[in-house]
Simulated scan of single mutants.
Amino acid sequence: MKSSRDFLLGFITGVVAGILTAPKSGQESRQWIQDEADKRTKDLQDQWSKGVEQVKSQVEQVKSQVNQWTGKLQNEGEEKKQQFNDTVETAADKAHDGVDAAKKSIKVD
């Protein structure tokens, strides 16, 4: 990492030194540096915007997936709740039928 940083720093230093010692006038060199800086700034802004858009897109995809999972879990929960209620109702009906049968058997005897 450090060698890459050192290389980049040396490269930039060399380019700047070359520009400043080039056979152009100071005003031309300053204008060229300003133009290049503006161009690079615009490029960086464009890359930043693209990166932000990609992140937003990924966030939206994750939100969508979470919403799908949440909906699925809610549906499964409702199904389990309904199954439980049906089981309880069936058990209650059987218990009621058993009580009725017991009452009838007691009355007959």
Rank of each mutant, 00 (worst) to 15 (best):
D38F: 13
Q27H: 15
G18D: 10
Q82F: 01
Q74P: 01
Q74R: 10
D97E: 15
L9V: 08
Q65P: 01
Q74C: 01
S105G: 07
K104L: 06
Q27N: 14
K81T: 11
G51W: 00
D38C: 08
V99P: 02
K56G: 04
K63S: 06
I12A: 08
A95R: 04
Q31E: 15
I106G: 03
M1Y: 13
A95P: 00
K56H: 15
I19F: 03
V55S: 04
E79C: 01
R40M: 06
K107I: 04
A92D: 12
K63F: 00
L8T: 07
G51S: 07
Q34V: 08
V52S: 10
F11G: 02
R40C: 03
W48H: 11
F11M: 05
W48E: 03
D35E: 15
L8V: 13
L44I: 05
T41G: 04
V66Y: 06
N85I: 13
K42F: 07
E53M: 11
S49E: 12
V62D: 00
Q58L: 03
E36P: 01
D93P: 01
F11A: 09
Q45P: 01
Q61A: 06
Q31C: 12
D35H: 14
G98Y: 04
W48Q: 05
D93S: 12
Q45C: 03
E79I: 01
V15C: 09
K50M: 02
S49N: 11
D109L: 11
T70F: 04
D97R: 10
S49H: 09
A92Q: 04
E79Y: 00
E53D: 15
K80S: 01
E79V: 02
I19Q: 00
G26S: 14
F7D: 08
A92K: 14
K39N: 09
M1Q: 08
E28S: 14
N67P: 00
D86F: 00
D46I: 06
V16A: 13
Q58R: 04
N75P: 01
K63Y: 02
K94Q: 13
E89S: 13
Q65G: 05
R30F: 15
N75I: 11
Q34R: 13
R40L: 10
S3E: 15
A95N: 03
W48N: 04
K56F: 14
G71S: 13
L20N: 09
G10C: 07
A92M: 10
E78H: 05
A102Y: 03
G77A: 12
E53H: 13
Q83L: 03
A101H: 06
K42C: 08
K24W: 13
G18W: 02
A37C: 08
Q54D: 11
A37L: 02
D35L: 12
A102G: 03
F7E: 11
E79G: 01
A17N: 05
K104S: 08
I19A: 01
E36N: 04
S57T: 14
D6W: 11
Q68S: 13
I19R: 01
E76M: 06
Q47S: 12
K72T: 11
G10A: 14
Q34M: 13
A102K: 05
A22I: 03
Q74A: 09
W32L: 05
N75W: 06
A101P: 00
G14V: 02
K107G: 03
Q74Y: 11
E76R: 06
Q47A: 11
V16Q: 06
Q54C: 08
K103C: 07
Q47L: 10
